[in-house]
């Protein structure tokens, strides 16, 4: 499932995938895979991304009930 929340949070910071990747210490392809829903990151990486985007885990990674 695509992670649109992450994509929009990144866009709100006007940050490219590469910039976010550099900030959290992973490759651009990994950020791309997370946004596309192709890869489930570990909790450590989730926290690093949240800190980089100034968001909480819930805001970026919790699935809302439909």
């Amino acid at each position: 499932m695509k992670n649109l929340k992450l994509k929009s949070a990144r866009a709100a910071f006007d940050m490219s995938q590469q910039e976010l990747a550099d900030k959290v210490g992973v490759s651009r392809q990994t950020i791309n895979a997370i946004e596309k829903g192709d890869y489930n990151p570990t909790i450590n990486l989730c926290i690093a991304i949240c800190k980089a985007l100034n968001k909480t885990l819930d805001e970026l990674f919790w699935e809302e009930a439909e």
């Binding site: 210490g25 992973v26 490759s27 990994t30 895979a33 890869y39 990151p41 570990t42 450590n44 990486l45």
Partner: peptide
């Protein structure tokens, strides 16, 4: 900078 594989690459 550190040259390494990230967690997705290792997986």
């Amino acid at each position: 900078a550190v040259s390494k594989y990230d967690e997705r690459q290792i997986a």
